Computed example of a mutant assay.
Amino acid sequence: MSEKQKHATAYWKENLKYLIILLSIWFIVSYGCGILFREALNEIRLGGFKLGFWFAQQGSIYVFVILIFVYVRLMNKLDKKYGFDE
């Protein structure tokens, strides 16, 4: 295997690691906080709404948008690390 192919393979392995971690965080926030932990979170209020309801309706969307920006930053660093930046 050539050096370029080794770099590409390592790049995609790190990329998949980032994707798995970030999507796991989103799953925990959206499914966990919005459905599984809803009863416990409903004891807390945020802006007059129960926190479990807030995560189900708004929180998972906000977390997803934040994770998009985190992913962009991680990918820019990864591109520079492996020389795929322009």
Rank of each mutant, 00 (worst) to 15 (best):
L46V: 14
Y11W: 06
E14S: 13
S2V: 08
A10H: 07
V63Y: 02
N15I: 07
I21Y: 01
L16T: 06
K80W: 00
A8W: 05
Y31I: 15
L67E: 03
V70G: 00
I66Q: 09
N42Y: 05
F55L: 02
G47F: 06
N42A: 07
E14H: 10
E43K: 15
G34M: 09
F37N: 06
I66S: 12
E43P: 01
K17R: 07
L19S: 14
Y82T: 09
E86V: 04
G48D: 03
G83A: 02
I21P: 08
Q58G: 01
F37E: 02
L51E: 00
A56N: 12
Y11Q: 09
G34V: 06
I25A: 00
V70M: 04
G48A: 11
I61L: 10
W54S: 06
Q5P: 03
G59V: 00
G83M: 05
F53V: 14
A8F: 08
V70E: 06
L41H: 05
F37P: 05
K77L: 14
Y11H: 10
E14T: 14
H7R: 15
I66E: 05
D79I: 10
R45N: 10
R73H: 10
F64D: 04
F49R: 15
K50S: 14
A40C: 03
Q58T: 11
F53T: 15
Y62W: 07
S24T: 11
E39A: 14
Q5C: 09
F37L: 15
V70R: 06
I35T: 13
K80D: 00
R45L: 13
Q5T: 13
Q57W: 11
M75W: 02
F64W: 08
Q57Y: 12
L22W: 01
Y62V: 04
F55Q: 08
F64N: 06
L51M: 15
